[in-house]
């Protein structure tokens, strides 16, 4: 088997394959064309749904900003927490009590009166 005869054989084989490609029946050719169009349309639909590349870093920045904000809230929250909790407890007392709002408005005066009475009698 010489190199020359092998090259001749391979050329003949390639020619025969090219002929087979050229002589594909019209139905097959039309079906392939339709498949190609479908693939390209699907690709375009997908591409139009996708975010532009320049938006991708913005997504990263937004995520980083959210993470930093949450971290900052957690960091500063313990300092304010006791005062807030006391205020919240006082609010709950006001809302659930049976006494009128005037009673709570005069609470300081009543405290003083009580203290003064105890002081004079005791």
């Amino acid at each position: 088997m010489t190199m020359e005869s092998e090259a001749k054989f391979l050329n003949a084989a390639k020619r025969a394959l090219d002929e087979a490609e050229k002589n594909l029946d019209p139905g097959t050719v039309a079906r392939l064309r339709a498949a190609r169009r479908e693939a390209l349309e699907q690709g375009q639909r997908r591409a139009s749904r996708a975010r532009p590349a320049w938006l991708l870093p913005l997504g990263g920045f937004a995520t980083a900003a959210i993470v930093l904000s949450v971290a900052a809230l957690l960091w500063f929250a313990p300092a304010n927490q006791p005062a807030n909790m006391q205020a919240n407890v006082a609010d709950i007392d006001l809302l659930t009590a049976h006494e009128s709002p005037e009673f709570f408005a005069d609470l300081d005066f009543l405290d003083w009166l009580d203290h003064d009475d105890n002081g004079t009698t005791g």
């Binding site: 087979a20 490609e21 594909l24 097959t28 050719v29 392939l32 190609r36 390209l40 690709g43």
Partner: peptide
């Protein structure tokens, strides 16, 4: 995608036969 269309048109028949 005209370039991709051209490329696929050029290879689809051989791909089918393969």
């Amino acid at each position: 995608m005209p370039a991709l269309d051209r490329f696929l048109a050029g290879v689809e028949r051989r791909a089918f036969l393969t």
